[in-house]
């Protein structure tokens, strides 16, 4: 097995009994639950004027906006900090880096796991959306959801969100591994999320700020969709390369 394969297999064991593993399920489910509760408990005046498909898209967009604006950047921040802190806390870098494996393999495995968590959590959100819509059909018929779920819209937007989050993921992984302090890592992520909340509303700067790139995927005029997908994923690859290079050269983890 390759060095990266072995490092990934080891990461899989480290995730057992950890909060990080549960977060993959809890974060998207919380967004779904809150959205369902909000719509189900709201008082609507009369039936919606939207068609069944339009209501589906309105509901799915609402879910995804909540995800990309707030939950996704906070999820990436926390997961990166938890994954890195598994080594910083008990000082296990000195054991890992004294093993006959290339140093970069440990960094690459962490980054890969973080990216995989974002993919899984976003996929769960996309898969839970039709189920949540079905619940709303019964709890709030006036909302207007009817007909089949917008599977194509969900698949395209979920994939685009993940790709656009590439640079944010790579940056946050580097910060969490580079600095031993949990607080530093969380502060950078929270600051990025808050700044992204404001910058994400700007058509001029939003597509260039790593924490607000996924937001652009859901902008009303999706002019920037391709731009953020390309910049997010290529920027993520570039930042991953820089992080690997830096980690390989540094003395400790």
């Amino acid at each position: 097995m390759s060095a990266l394969g072995r490092a990934l297999a080891a990461e899989q064991v480290k995730l057992r009994h950890s909060l990080a593993a549960w977060m993959v399920v809890l974060a998207p489910m919380l967004v779904v639950l809150l959205s369902v509760l909000q719509i189900s408990l709201s008082r609507l005046h009369g039936p919606s004027s939207l068609s069944g498909q339009e209501a589906w898209l309105r509901f799915a967009s609402g879910l995804f906006v909540l995800w990309v604006f707030l939950m996704l950047p906070l999820f990436v921040t926390l997961q990166a900090a938890l994954l890195a802190n598994m080594e910083h806390g008990p000082q296990t870098w000195k054991h890992l880096l004294a093993l006959p494996l290339p140093r970069w393999s440990h960094y690459a495995a962490k980054l890969f796991v973080l990216a995989a968590m974002v993919v899984m959590a976003t996929a769960l959100l996309a898969l839970a959306t039709p189920l949540a819509g079905w619940v709303i059909m019964h709890t709030q018929p006036a909302f207007g959801i009817a007909g089949p779920a917008p599977w194509r819209w969900l698949a395209v937007h979920a994939s685009a969100c993940v790709a656009a989050a590439g640079l944010m993921i790579a940056l946050q992984a580097w910060v969490a591994i580079r600095w031993q302090s949990f607080t530093t890592s969380v502060f950078v992520g929270v600051a990025g999320t808050v700044a992204g909340f404001l910058i994400g509303q700007s058509a001029r700067f939003g597509p260039w700020f790593p924490w607000s790139m996924p937001v652009q995927v859901l902008a009303r005029q999706s002019n920037h969709l391709m731009q953020v997908v390309v910049v997010g994923s290529l920027g993520g690859l570039l930042m991953a390369g820089l992080g690997l290079w830096h980690f390989d050269r540094s003395e400790a983890g």
């Binding site: 080891a10 899989q12 064991v13 480290k14 057992r16 009994h17 008990p90 000082q91 296990t92 004294a98």
Partner: peptide, 26 residues
Amino acid sequence: SMVESPSLYPHLSGYENLEVTRRLLD
């Protein structure tokens, strides 16, 4: 090697701690 304190994951069992390194060393 063991440098200073043992490098262990407290949330894992002793067996799982060994399993992490076993997988790394194949």
